[in-house]
Nucleic acid binder design. Structure first.
Lengths: 211, 211
DNA sequence: ATTTTTTTTGACCGATTGGAAAAATTCTAG
DNA sequence: CTAGAATTTTTCCAATCGGTCAAAAAAAAT
């Protein structure tokens, strides 16, 4: 046994590039059909390579799926992490909504991948939800409760407030087909996110302004 | 060719019962894994019968899936249909929210089946969304706009108002795992729907009351 | 230029998939 | 009780599934 064999070899240029291509293709497929509904062949074709070639870079289907999930939860919660107790209560919440909506616009596949994972009970996600996510939300709920105590925000359940923000913003990514169908071709073009931002801003402004 | 062969035989008692058992089992499976992620074997086992036996009642996987979808959209939109222009604006909207939330509580699988179908682009649903659904929402949006013109409701985009109601209520069915994880064991028990109802009622009351 | 390493390919594997066919069984109407 | 219909089981199929392996090809290092 040599010491050299222990440390993993550095990645080559091709490895980095192809792994990126594969993850990109996998995101396309997984976000539509979920983990079980997607096939390696499908991903390989979307990535423009053969199945054995793809399996040279990722040992298994799960090995492609896992890093996508890991990457997403982090990105997904970043806007919430940035909510600061020092800022103005209403401004902080409204800018959180705006940023979350921008993510639905710019990363709809990531949103759908996440939704797919939730729908099947988040098997490879369960612990993180109960630890990392819960801790973060608890922390932010405390901040929000503080704002309410100071009279800067109408009193309400901070957890359900956060849920409602998640729901309303992610809806535009996850149910995009429905949204576009209902809005029709003229209204659903590109301004549906601007209209949504306007509506949500107003709803939460009036809904959360203390009386 | 006899005329008798044309008209389908009446269903027997066993046919009606077993078809119901199968659809029930299929709802369990499809709502978790989506159409492509579910297998006939899985559904057959959940229904307590063999695969060929199941295929005696439904010719194919799609033949099990289709009636579930058809049944759901109808049930799903019933609360919206009941929104009447004669009622009080705010009361109508608040009771719509309440009814929709009750459906998420009582029929979470139906909600998840619907969500799964949206995520993959609603292939067997596309036309209905653009015709039936759009027509209904257009009609109700007109009613809402009328209320606003009468000064009974704060001015806002009626379409995005409806979207936000769909999103916030369905969230409690589709993302139930996440909701329960964040709320924890004590707060997430059985009163999460009551708490949600309270929060949403307040948010939309203050958010939509004309100034 | 040649050796070594990395990448790609093609052929293949056992398990599972959606589904067909037919025999065996059970139910039901007369 | 019995003929005919309805139901269930057994067996089977071709296609696809996730994944392996060895050999060929291409890059990189010497």
């Amino acid at each position: 046994m040599s010491a050299k064999a222990q440390r993993p070899r550095p990645k080559t240029r091709i490895q980095r590039e192809k792994q990126e291509v594969i993850l990109e293709a996998a995101l396309d497929v997984f976000s539509q059909f979920g983990f079980r509904g997607s096939t390696i062949d499908q991903i390989a074709e979307a990535a423009g390579m053969s199945k054995p070639n793809l399996l040279y870079y990722f040992k298994s289907k799960e090995d492609i799926h896992a890093p996508l999930l890991a990457r997403i939860l982090d990105t997904w919660l970043e806007p919430l992490r940035e909510m600061s107790p020092e800022g103005d209560a209403l401004s902080e919440i409204r800018s959180y909504i705006r940023r979350k909506l921008e993510m639905s616009r710019d990363f709809p596949r990531e949103s759908r991948l996440f939704a797919n994972e939730m729908l099947r009970g988040a098997p490879g996600f369960y612990e993180i939800l109960h630890t990392d996510l819960k801790t973060l939300v608890d922390e932010k709920a405390l901040i929000i409760t503080g704002w309410m105590a100071e009279g800067r925000l109408a009193r309400c359940d901070p957890y359900h407030l956060i849920f409602s923000i998640w729901a309303t913003t992610q809806h535009y990514a996850d149910f995009d087909i429905q949204v576009q169908a209902v809005l029709g071709s003229e209204r659903g073009g590109d301004n549906r996110f601007e209209d949504a931002a306007l509506f949500l801003d107003q709803l939460y402004l009036h809904g959360l302004t203390p009386k």
